[in-house]
Amino acid sequence: MAALSAASARPVTLTDTALQVSGLYKAYDGQAVVAGVDFAVPTASCFGLLGPNGAGKTTTLRCCLGLTRPDAGEIVLGGHPVPAGAQAARRRVGVVPQFDNLDPDFTCSENLLVYGRYFGIADATIRSRIPALLDFAGLSGKASAPIPSLSGGMKRRLTLARALVNDPDIVFLDEPTTGLDPQARHLIWDRLKRLMAQGKTLILTTHFMDEAERLCDQLAILDHGRVMAEGAPRALIAGHIEPQVIEVFGDDVGRWAASHHDLGERLEVAGDTAFFYCREPAPLLAALADEATNSGLRYVHRAASLEDVFLKLTGRDLRD
């Protein structure tokens, strides 16, 4: 772990803000994809960018890395203005892309060596870091394994190790656990927490709300190219939604819900499920206890989650 823990020994340089985005605007063919986005990521925190497909997350990330030139707005990444200083900024940045782009012709350690060279790091330095990086990724025995022999979870972990080859201050992760099984997902979460403990700044996009709730200090919910809400996960739940949710399912739930809507502050019906959002659940629970068995309804009572906030802000319509 020598190579990785070296980061915590290094004094925090530059600013307290790892990434500052102001007034970001980008349109394609007259259609605004990012329509005035502002947010700031404090150094050594984990920031989540949430949003349905097509909300503008990827374009925002590409702008932050200097890969897409915005039509308007200012970005400062690690103290460097982007895109003008993007190449310098990327020296101190690691990126875990959404889709695997490891080099299939190389072994695990060759992937790390070749990638480290792109940062101008000497071969000897990279080679000395490789064992710790592979260990961090849980791939210690796989130094000479060819990429096609790795599972999806192993590839994602190797991609994470590759993003750390330059010992970055800031790590971007674009949907880091999409397509992974629960075991692999938990392992990635564990590693991301370790990186946070080392003082690295994480910026991740996801549409897994439990992931965002678990990892992020701050998050922004993005839709139609705008920030719909921003804050700490708990604060967003407290500020945007009633604390209790009762989901009622059954064939004729729509009619039943309509006649009982006054038992919750807010009611949403989607398909054969009615979502009652309320502060005081007792009256509704009593009504359900009386009537549910006879009317063939079932229900779940739970605390409100980030997913409820997300759905309230971005709607229940499919985005493809």
Binding site: L65, L67, Q87, R90, V95, P97, D103, Y118, F119
Partner: peptide, 14 residues
């Protein structure tokens, strides 16, 4: 296909 260039563009190279 392999998106090797995309991976490189995330480094300080242009």
């Amino acid at each position: 296909v392999q998106k090797t260039w995309d991976a490189i563009l995330n480094t300080p190279l242009s």
